[in-house]
């Protein structure tokens, strides 16, 4: 299986060159993307800071304007609970409507079960 093994094949086919250049290009492209995203985020923060300053908001002077995902999850949960409690109409469904379906062995639930329920 390894009879064709020959380390010089790598050099003869420019394997080292392709690998080094290829890896560096992959690295550079993702590094550039990371740098652009970082500066884009900073630019957005600067713009937001200016806006807050013009409104005279105290938060404009804070070091980091962004909030963590945990804080926004907590705010969303609080808002959800608040609005859920505000409804004034109770759900008045008192009965369960039976849905009629024509029986067909092609869509029978029983035939689709992998384990027959124990009685």
């Amino acid at each position: 299986m390894f009879d064709k093994f020959n380390i010089s094949n790598i050099v003869e086919n420019d394997g080292v060159l392709i690998s080094i250049v290829g890896y560096l290009v992959v690295f550079t492209s993702l590094l550039l993307l990371a740098i652009i995203i970082t500066y884009f985020q900073k630019a957005l923060q600067t713009q937001q800071r200016k806006k807050l300053k013009s409104l005279g908001h105290r938060a404009a002077d804070s070091e980091n304007l962004s909030i963590s995902g945990e804080v926004s999850a907590a705010i969303s949960t609080a808002l959800y609970l608040h609005f859920e409690e505000k409804h004034d109409l109770e759900n008045t469904v008192l009965t369960i409507k039976r849905v009629q379906r024509t029986y067909s062995p092609w869509s029978s639930k029983l035939y689709g079960l992998r384990e027959i329920p124990k009685r």
Binding site: F2, F5, N6, I20
Partner: peptide, 14 residues
Amino acid sequence: IGIFLTFMAALALG
């Protein structure tokens, strides 16, 4: 890095 090292290994294997 796995891609490029294996690329060289496959070349060496013919």
